[in-house]
Design a protein around this nucleic acid. Structure first.
Lengths: 308, 308
DNA sequence: CAATATTAATTCCATAAAGATAATAATCAT
DNA sequence: ATGATTATTATCTTTATGGAATTAATATTG
């Protein structure tokens, strides 16, 4: 019997308090879960889980064993990371979690290049705006726009890019409501607010003379920049969006950049990853790669255009 | 693939520097060893052993992984011991190592009773007078007569019985050479020396007035008490043997106890076992059992007879 | 409060993977 | 080069896996 995989199954069952949930999460059948737990119980010679078809409880020995198993599985992981690191060659499954829109627009373009360059690394990407518990969920790497809260001290957050925001609106909207000439003018406009961090109603603009913060208002707040974008494209108002979101629309002339002499805020992109003793090369490799990729692909065209 | 058992195989291969030795020691086929190592290498994504059919060397990553594996296997063991201990029920394989003669004469009699009382414990007994490295060899418990040297601080030695030695010789020998009346008289006798510890030529005898040590000599020294016994039974001289060795011959009248008012040395029987965080109940169970058994079966008859 | 519905673990059976034995290939000593 | 020894491969047997049917326990509902 494969004790180690049975341990992994057992740990997952205890965490989720369900055979079937653990099964589907682990991608195996529930019958396999059932059998593996049974075998594990036989192996250690004690009942680990008290179960009826309806309720699941962990026995005293089960709880103690669960702790041990977690430690053992972590050690096994560490051993494999150690080998990876000594070996140097990036390899294995890299599980990435990324913000929704950023993932759709940018990460999605970088991934094929990465795959081509490193065929021995398998990718599994989840796009998700909620602050999942990254380690618990088994991600190797999370890409997060805006300052991450790191309740877990075993995580490292490293800023790998700055993402400039740009004020924009459609020519049609501007024709109707006028071009803002100063930041103060924004108060008179319908501002479409992208809620990413807190204080999203405050837009800060900087030029050579200093920066000023304007409290804006409008009839849309959304936590997804594509929603804000669509509203802007539909002539609903002024949006403050990341370069990579509006790029192609600015190029097409469907959106016009406002107050080009001002620099809007910059969002930061953070790579968040476990602070492990031996971190597998695939993680740092991807971070290096992506950082390089972003430098080449992120803040090129709009910058020129806006500052020209 | 069963990573854990593959790790165990790998560790054994590295220790023994041979696939085939590891196979025979682990009781599996060498093809299985070969496959498991290959799979493990695939799994971690690195070559662990550099091997030709003729020579075997451990790669750098292999050496590092080997260390990790040892720790992991120890932890798995500890986890199972923990379960055993919480569970309380003695169970599993108990591997005992014991001195040759003691094992043949006493342990051999205790074992069937133990087996009957605790059917869930499987026994594997090795009789061996050499000071094997107990932990390395995978024994749970060693029974050793005489003071053990414990180079390994992770071992506990617990005295579980005193084994009285008795001076004896055949009536025929005594008729020819006379009965010794004082310890000093032993110098005139051919003393058959059982070499167990050092200084085996010195016999210490104690009575109400104190103890005296006599340097004896003779034409036989042996490291096995049955050899000494046979020599004594063949009228070759005076022996100083453990009660359990000579018991039946004294009863039969083939051996006669000498200087009955004196107490000869006592050997100590030690139980030696790993000082583990969670020691499995089977070990302490056996020690308790055997200690009790020895109290009932060891120093009964001869004591009465000798002191009467 | 009882009968039923529902959900979750287990068992049964067909298939896939892993293990053992025996034969093969490979390497170093003589 | 040959032989002795050791790892690998081939074939067969045993064991594990996944899906359907079963069993069991609580929630629901009349």
């Amino acid at each position: 019997m494969d004790v180690l995989s049975a341990m992994a199954v057992f740990v997952r069952v205890v965490d989720l308090k369900s055979f079937s949930l653990a099964a589907s999460e682990l991608g195996i059948s529930s019958s396999s879960v059932s059998k593996q737990i049974s075998h594990l119980e036989q192996h250690v010679g004690a009942r680990l889980l008290q179960r009826t078809t309806r309720r699941l409880s962990v026995t005293e020995v089960g709880a103690a064993y669960h702790e041990k198993c977690q430690a053992i599985l972590a050690d096994v992981d560490e051993a494999e990371n150690l080998v990876s690191q000594l070996q140097g060659k990036p390899r294995g499954l890299l599980r990435i979690n990324c913000n929704m829109t950023f993932g759709q627009l940018l990460l999605s373009k970088a991934i094929p290049e990465f795959m081509a360059a490193y065929p021995d690394v398998q990718l599994e990407v989840a796009l998700d705006d909620s602050d999942v518990e990254l380690l618990k969920e088994g991600f190797d790497l999370a890409l997060r726009i805006a300052h991450p809260k790191l309740p877990d001290s075993s995580l490292i957050a490293r800023q790998i890019a700055s993402i400039p925001l740009f004020l924009c609106a459609t020519p049609s909207y501007l024709a109707q409501h006028g071009h803002p000439q100063t930041p103060e003018d924004l108060r008179q406009h319908n501002c479409l607010v992208f809620m990413l961090a807190s204080n999203t109603n405050l837009w800060t603009l900087t030029n050579a003379e200093g920066s000023q913060t304007v409290q804006v208002s409008g009839d849309l707040k959304a936590n997804n920049s594509l929603l804000v974008l669509q509203a802007a494209l539909a002539h609903r108002g002024v949006a403050n969006l990341a370069s990579f979101v509006i790029e192609r629309y600015v190029e097409e002339g469907r959106l016009e950049l406002l107050l080009p002499e001002f620099q809007a805020e910059q969002l930061s992109l953070y790579a968040i990853y476990p602070d492990r003793k031996y971190s597998p090369p695939k993680v740092s490799l991807f971070i290096e790669f992506f950082q390089g990729w972003l430098e080449n692909n992120l803040q090129q065209k709009l910058h020129c255009q806006s500052r020209s």
